[in-house]
Design a protein around this nucleic acid. Structure first.
Lengths: 366, 366
DNA sequence: GATTAGCACTCTAAAGAAATGAGTGCTAAC
DNA sequence: GTTAGCACTCATTTCTTTAGAGTGCTAATC
């Protein structure tokens, strides 16, 4: 199957062309400069003269794998070439490059701190910009509700969802609620709702609850809204970023004012959630996905490449780690690094419930 | 008094020099280009020839108010000149420039959203970078604690502080806590701690509580730690930023890689808390403070000017709004804008308790 | 004494001009 | 099919020139 797929992709590329193309790509990844025929002539062990290479490169250009920025310049790879490169690379190597094993010197107790740390470590280590989204809860269940009295005018609803996601919500009330009523409401809500998923809390259930709440139906309504939000949890999908300014390190990105827009995207954070959504769908390539240029999920990243990894903590909790850099990114290293991080995160938090434990950071690995 | 202070500051500056200096500053603020004698000769209504202006400017340079970037260039103001300018400006005008009155089209219900909005509106409107810190609670009191059982291994402590700041904390437990014990602990904690400030929860109190908790002393200890954090609230002083990339719009800041560092400061956010601390101390100038160049509270802003406003919501809750831009900032507009925002915020949230109300955004003003 | 006109001088920024060199495409020979 | 050779292109660098803005100084004027 891999063979056939290969044939499809490398359509018309004989082995020599392929080797030359790879040489061009690798060289360009390193230097960032257009690659000339003479360079390839020496760089490969094909023992071909530059003239021959020139002929081949001319073919490659016609096929859309490389272009010249201008006449009389070397060639640079197109998005098509990167795609080919990445695909074959991903197929060939399943080897884990964990040169940054143990880079997260110690696991953080709190998940948000941990994710922040992941983002920062990745950014510092790769010199690209990073985005980490906290695990979103998909189809999760309500654990319990705690209703407390804050003052005469408002109640506090503390909602805990499976996976120990906690959400507080202020519920305004018109009349004073006494302790007894509060207790009743607490029992009412918990006895009916505990263990429920969003789907299961249907109109019938809601009507039943409101009926039983009597004159406090309004309050119950407010609480249910808060519950819905807590379970869905989409509103405040936490996003952590780091190293946005790394973008300025790559001339091809730093120049124009597009760099500003891009960094702005990182500052706003809001749009970045799209990266998570996009990459969550797929589970094929070991949770790693590569978007090159136009494929990028966000407009301001059209000149970049985006590599995402989805980590999976069980209980349907999935988050994503993404790296954003120039198209001439060190895909090899980035993919390896992401895999390592993904493993690290999964090992640390999987099935231990959101909060995490103090000890035992990287148990399973190796 | 103002006169004397003026005399101190404008030491050796006669009226004409002062007017010329002001003209240089204003012109430079507008254009960003060094200002020549001929320009001033026309720009002011002094009716002096360029030659005379040159003589005066030569004096001003000697006095340290202006410098030439190089021989045969016009003059640009020094930090000293900006300081003078800002000080006299602040003295002279108490008039509120509210050209962005009602810019916050509608008040947000939730404070964090509101502050985010303030940051964004300011950034878009001024074209500078903005920092808004949420009100920190100083010397605040505990409202109540709600202890709930999450599962066999952990409890959830929900801590509400005056001003309705809510904090959740997971408390790991070794043995299973039954409902009755939980109720007892709840009562124990609330009966002793409600209404207490951090100072009042002293060692005696702590010992007393632990004694009464018996075998659950450990749990009480953990809870008290969480309470301390909640009241202090310093750990996660919320910081909202916007328009960091505006910095790239000003050539004098965008050029070097210092711009990267600066934007990075905004991304990290952590260091920005220092702005709040710094500016909170002072209440003299109507809550507005201007830091020019070297005076800036953060290292990476040494080439910028920082204008901060402290807003005061009563109950000791104070936060800050800051604007970071080039030294040739439109101080006039910025100060006016900040004052307006400060008022807007105070009117919206003052004494209504953190949550805010839906209606009545800009009541008092004008 | 203060102000101004005039002029020589300085230095930057912009515009041209020339040199450099990397790289290509093509052709003819191997 | 491969290669050597050569003419040609074009970005980049360097040097030169030019233009212009602005100063500082001096001598004349008010």
């Amino acid at each position: 199957m891999a063979g056939q797929e290969n044939k499809n992709k490398t359509d018309g590329l004989d082995d020599r062309k392929l080797r030359i193309l790879h040489a061009v790509i690798r060289n360009y990844l390193e230097t960032g400069e257009p690659v000339g025929s003479r360079t390839i002539s020496k760089y490969t062990d094909l023992n071909l003269s530059s003239a021959t290479i020139r002929n081949e490169m001319s073919d490659l250009e016609e096929m859309g794998y490389i272009v010249q920025p201008h006449t009389s310049a070397g060639r640079i790879p197109t998005d098509k070439a990167y795609r080919l490169y990445v695909d074959t690379m991903m197929e060939e190597k399943e080897r884990e490059i964990s040169d940054l094993k143990g880079l997260l010197s110690e696991a953080e107790e709190k998940m948000d701190l941990m994710l922040k740390k992941v983002a920062r470590v990745l950014a510092v280590n790769t010199n690209y910009a990073t985005v980490v989204t906290a695990p979103a809860i998909h189809g999760n269940k309500l654990k319990f509700i705690q209703l407390s009295r804050v003052d005469d005018a408002q109640l506090l609803a503390t909602i805990v969802v499976e996976g120990n996601v906690i959400r507080n919500s202020m519920i305004p009330v018109d009349e004073v609620i006494n302790e007894e009523t509060l207790l009743k409401l607490n029992i009412l809500l918990n006895s009916h709702l505990n263990g429920m998923s969003l789907d299961e809390i249907n109109l019938g259930m809601i009507t039943l609850l409101k009926e039983q709440a009597g004159i406090h139906a309004g309050i119950v309504g407010d609480i249910l809204d808060a519950v819905a939000q807590a379970i869905r949890g989409d509103e405040d999908l936490e996003v952590y970023t780091s190293g946005a300014t790394n973008i300025l390190k790559y001339p091809e990105l730093a120049d124009n004012q597009k760099a500003g827009e891009l960094i702005n995207t990182f500052e706003e954070k809001k749009a970045l959630a799209k990266i998570a959504e996009e990459s969550l769908d797929d589970g094929s390539t070991g949770g790693i996905q590569v978007y090159i240029g136009e494929e990028a999920p966000i407009d301001s990243m059209k000149d970049c490449s985006v590599v995402t990894a989805t980590y999976e903590l069980g209980d349907g909790m999935r988050g994503s780690i993404a790296i954003v850099g120039p198209k001439r990114m060190d895909y090899d290293k980035v993919v390896g690094t992401l895999k390592t991080m993904k493993d690290e995160l999964e090992n640390t938090y999987k099935k231990k419930g959101g909060g995490g434990k103090k000890k035992g950071s990287a148990g399973k690995k190796e």
